[in-house]
Computed example of a mutant assay.
Amino acid sequence: MIKILKYTEYLYLVVAVVSIYKVATLWSINPKETYIFIFFAVVSTAMFLFRRRYRKRFEQRKKENQQ
């Protein structure tokens, strides 16, 4: 189960990078369309950090229960 959590947290990071790329490419054409991609980048980065913290806590509890 830990491996699945690692993959999902990096999936959020990929979404953030793609969103930042879209913002960079679309900003000069139509800045109003980029606001949704900025939102996706911020939310995806926050979710990455949240999921990473949650996974590390889960691993810590699992180690404590095994001892």
Rank of each mutant, 00 (worst) to 15 (best):
T45H: 06
I29G: 03
Y10R: 07
R57Y: 11
N65R: 13
Q60T: 15
N65C: 01
S19V: 04
V23H: 02
V14G: 11
T34C: 13
E33L: 08
Y35T: 11
N30P: 01
F37V: 03
S28W: 05
S19I: 03
S44T: 04
Y10N: 13
F50K: 13
F48C: 06
K62C: 07
I20Y: 09
F48I: 01
L13A: 05
K56R: 15
F58I: 09
F37G: 02
L13T: 02
T25M: 03
L26V: 00
Y54P: 00
V15M: 05
F37K: 03
S19Y: 05
F48E: 01
W27D: 10
T34R: 03
Y21Q: 01
F50C: 11
L13G: 00
E33Y: 07
Y10Q: 08
Q66T: 09
I20N: 08
A41S: 12
R61P: 00
I2G: 14
Y12D: 15
F58M: 14
V17Y: 10
I20F: 12
V43P: 07
K3I: 15
R61I: 01
I38D: 03
I36G: 08
S28A: 10
K22I: 06
E59S: 00
Y7P: 00
V15W: 00
F40Y: 15
K63W: 06
R61L: 08
P31S: 06
Q66S: 11
M1V: 15
K63P: 02
E33M: 06
Y10T: 02
E59M: 09
S44I: 02
W27C: 05
V18W: 00
E33S: 11
Q60L: 12
K56W: 10
F48N: 06
L13M: 07
S19D: 05
R51S: 10
R57M: 11
K62D: 11
T34S: 12
A41T: 04
E59L: 06
I2S: 15
L11Q: 07
V17W: 09
V18K: 06
E59R: 01
T45N: 07
V15I: 13
A24K: 11
P31C: 02
Y7V: 05
Q67V: 04
Q67H: 09
S19F: 03
Q66I: 10
E64L: 10
V42C: 11
Q67F: 03
Y10C: 03
V18I: 13
A24D: 08
A41L: 05
A41W: 02
L49I: 12
E59V: 08
R52W: 10
L11F: 08
Y35I: 14
E9K: 13
F37N: 11
F39K: 14
V23G: 01
E9A: 04
V23P: 01
V14Y: 05
K22E: 10
K62S: 12
K56S: 12
K3S: 15
S44Q: 02
W27K: 07
Y54E: 14
Y21H: 02
Y12Q: 13
V43H: 03
T34I: 10
S44P: 09
K63M: 13
M1H: 15
A24P: 00
